[in-house]
Design a protein around this nucleic acid. Sequence first.
RNA 1: GGAGAGGUCGCAUAGUUGGUCUAGUGCGCUCGCCUGGAAAGCGGGUAGGGUGUUACAGCCCUCGAGGGUUCGAAUCCCUCUCUCUCCGCCA
Length: 427
Amino acid sequence: MLDINLLRQNPDEVIAMLHRRSMADDAGKVQELLDIDRTRKEMVQRADDLKALRNRVSKEIADIKRAGQGSAEELIVQMKSVSDQITGLDASLTKLESDMEELLLTLPNKLHPSVPEGRSAEDNVLYRGPFEFAHQLDFPVKNHLELGKSLGLLDFERGAKISGAGFPVYIGKGARLERALINFMLDTHTANHGYTEVFPPFMVNQESLRGTGQWPKFADQVYHMPEDGLYAIPTAEVPVTNLHRGEMLDTDKLPIAYAAYSACFRREAGSYGKDTRGFLRVHQFNKVEMVRFTRPEKSYEALEEILGHAEAILCALKIPYRVITLCGGDISANAAKCYDIEVWSPAEDKYLEASSVSNFEDYQARRSNIRFKPDGKSKPEFVHTLNGSGLATSRLMVSLLEHYQTADGKVKVPEVLQPYTGFDVIG
RNA sequence: GGAGAGGUCGCAUAGUUGGUCUAGUGCGCUCGCCUGGAAAGCGGGUAGGGUGUUACAGCCCUCGAGGGUUCGAAUCCCUCUCUCUCCGCCA
């Protein structure tokens, strides 16, 4: 959520941002918000004046009653009408304020000046890489589906039977390899990168979705359990960031760094037909997520650190990748700046997104009211929140199986995973 | 799912015949005095949001959340939520 003060003081900056994001259609919302804001202030002033009057006169009535002399009847009649006016004003105010918040919630985050200009994914800019690791693939490569099937690691057909398309089943060494990846990543982040491990709930309430920005904008992408008012998390970012919703964080505890495994659930509505094969697009996948809460002036430093932590996993696994900076037209509405890490798939002959690393600045903190006091006694300020996948296993599994395959149809296990799998080759 | 008890300013508590509670007290924290220094003692301060102001002040709102009754609610009524105890069911 944007600061209403930013709109008041610098509406042109907000409109310019909307253009950079290719969201010029939303520019009208800015003036609409400013109009509501002005009306609201006037009404608050009137209501407050009346409340002050009522408080004062109620005290006089109390004095008269206590003294037991004189009649308060006339005052009571007057205050009755004052109270009626207040009730009316408060009702209008509640409506105005909720309108205002709904509008404000739909506006995207500011963009960092370093975010490249551009309209779509075509315009994203290479930030680092590509990084190659030696893999001898001097034979016709199989794709991850063929390998998963021939080696009995993955079963998409039975997943479709028990749940639906896009719900993969891991079996035998496939399941073990998946679990090894998750454990390796969590261990690395907690032991080497300073994160505290969190195992969060996989279902959250609507307030939590609102806090991180998935609601209301991405409501149609989230699985919903209406009976209980719960939503399946699309990423661990949601429960983990919301751990501190509504809290005043101890300044000396900052920065806070959490690493969390979770299954992630996404409806992927509207994307049927694109990249549907196997792991390329699924409704449920596993991911280890890094989440940070920092002081505002430290957040861009933290962004680079998180990116480095995700890259460290790929380097350890020796999986080829590159890092791109998302342009204004492609970056998500919640992020002020975002890097994507893409892993190379030799069978698909293209890069696949395996991680997003984002700085949300105070956008989520403002929505979820997460603050700290800079020097212990001054006014509270919003923290900056960040997160990065470190990483999602689905695309990682594609790249891993394909790169580590051998000419005779087996798959070697990356060296760093062998202590976790207990075997060094599959097949 | 059923029954009961309870959620008060960091912590602990007072408050329950509605008006002196715009919330008392203790602890903690903090500033000052005292002291060679410290403890003790004494005195002051000790939330957030809105509005407003150059900045103060002032005013409004918040006693789990939201409604209601009333001139006026921490105090009465309703709904929800969380915690604890017991019963039932169950991975």
